[in-house]
């Protein structure tokens, strides 16, 4: 791994300044993706700016409508949070199934979203729950945030500070892990709110996380697994790799969506 200058600023302004001052700076939150990327030499930043020194980036707050999760909150903290389990148990469940126990003790929601790995779990929750990504500069609606593989709407140097989720009426996440890496080969997050049903799919799309519109319409009519009978996402826009061809992913999306709906319906 190529060496870099490491800094751990203790407030957002200093972090932003460090980034601006660098020709090639990278923020690090949990490091669970960035460190492997650095080891492989796929990124060679001059400066790594560790965001874990910024105290108010971490933590979970609940209000009457939902919860807000600080960007450097670890997956394990979200999974174990009473507040999250109360307000959005599906989100706690998702967080508890990311990676493995050690990864969950380091990985963060902000890091996961900023990286937007097509097989990451959190993007499905953020999109299905219509969450708001809050940065040091603005608020970004989930719909506008994700912008293709490993790409987001974040500007150069912009830092996610927290993510705001409104509690749905009911929701569930079902994940089909890659047999080797155990990343999501397909993950489907289904959420029902007063505004309707949203179904977000991760792990499968050629452009990353996406919504399954036809499923949403069918579930809005009848929130039951049976409502998804015969509905499949077209395989054309899905990934094919050595672990799963697009048609298998398309099939799994329907299966996982049905299972998520059944679970959401049962837990409500």
């Amino acid at each position: 791994m190529q060496d870099f200058h490491f800094t751990r600023p203790d407030d957002l302004a200093a972090a932003g300044q460090a980034h601006q001052a660098s020709d090639d700076g990278a923020y690090m939150a949990g490091g669970q993706t960035l460190i492997p990327v650095l080891k492989q030499g796929l990124a060679m930043p001059e400066d790594v700016i560790d965001l874990n020194g910024i105290a108010d980036l971490s933590g979970i707050e609940a209000d009457g409508h939902g919860i807000t999760i600080g960007a450097t909150t670890r997956h394990a903290s979200v999974a174990a949070s009473e507040a999250v389990c109360q307000a959005i148990p599906a989100l706690a469940d998702l967080a508890g199934r990311i990676g493995d126990p050690q990864v969950r003790n380091r990985g963060t929601i902000g890091g996961s979203l900023a990286n937007n790995d097509p097989s990451a779990d959190y993007p499905a929750a953020v999109l299905a729950l219509n969450a708001t990504v809050v940065t040091d500069r603005r608020e970004i609606a989930a719909e506008a945030f994700f912008d293709g593989l490993f790409t987001t709407n974040l500007n150069e140097g912009e830092i996610i500070t927290r993510v705001r989720f409104a509690a749905p009426d009911r929701a569930a996440y079902e994940k089909f892990p890659n047999p080797a890496s155990r990343y999501a080969l397909v993950g489907v997050f289904v959420a029902q709110t007063a505004d309707g049903v949203r179904v977000a799919v991760t792990g499968a799309g050629q452009d990353g996380v996406f919504r399954a519109a036809e499923m949403e319409t069918a579930l809005a009519d009848s929130f039951s697994a049976g409502a998804l009978d015969g509905i499949a996402v077209p395989a054309d826009d899905l990934m094919t790799d050595m672990h799963a061809a697009a048609d298998y992913r398309a099939h799994l999306i329907t299966v996982m969506a049905k299972r998520a709906v059944a679970r959401a319906a049962a837990t409500a």
Binding site: P179, A180, S181, Y183, M242, H243
Partner: peptide
């Protein structure tokens, strides 16, 4: 299958 990410 050059790493444990792909070799299960």
């Amino acid at each position: 299958t050059g790493s444990l990410m792909d070799y299960g």
